[in-house]
Amino acid sequence: MTQQPEILHYAVSVVGKDRPGIVAGIAEVLFRLGCNLADTSCTMLAGEFAMILIVSHPRPFSKSRLLDELKPVCDGMGMSLAMRTLHADEITRQETDDEICIISVYGADQPGIVYRVTRELAGRGVNIMDLNTKLIGSDEEPVYVMMLEAALPDGETPEGLEKLLENLKKELNVEIGVRVVTPVSF
């Protein structure tokens, strides 16, 4: 009895100097190979374009084949390429009944803002779903801005979270706000 070969997914990341045509270049390779693009997130970070893609193929498709095809294109565009194999049981549908909050943190730039805030959140089982940080302001007065979107575990409230972060707010002298953005469904 032959076993059906597993359909694998690949987590692909591509990063390099931003310019028009990067997405088209990568997408063309994948399209030509007959690959599917599931979830993707691509954004510009300080002039670098960073792509993270979940790629699959309707038929068994090797990682080395995908690498062989993407590598020359990435090299041609001067972009780094990394890839990880995801097994079927690692692909999960993101579903939650949790309260979703945006937590904003900003203030004079200093070491440890990301670490201190996220450590508090992790300690309470708060799951970060999205995180953006950016250094703004002037050279003399750099300001750090962090926006994160998080799912609160059962029993945790936005008010409780605000209270939890209150001490940190004083210690780091930064502003911290928690706002509920749980989607409303119609």
């Binding site: 979703i100 953005v181 749980t182 989607p183 409303v184 469904s185 119609f186």
Partner: peptide, 8 residues
């Protein structure tokens, strides 16, 4: 106002 919406 901006609201995060979903739809059945």
């Amino acid at each position: 106002a901006i609201t995060r919406e979903g739809c059945m």
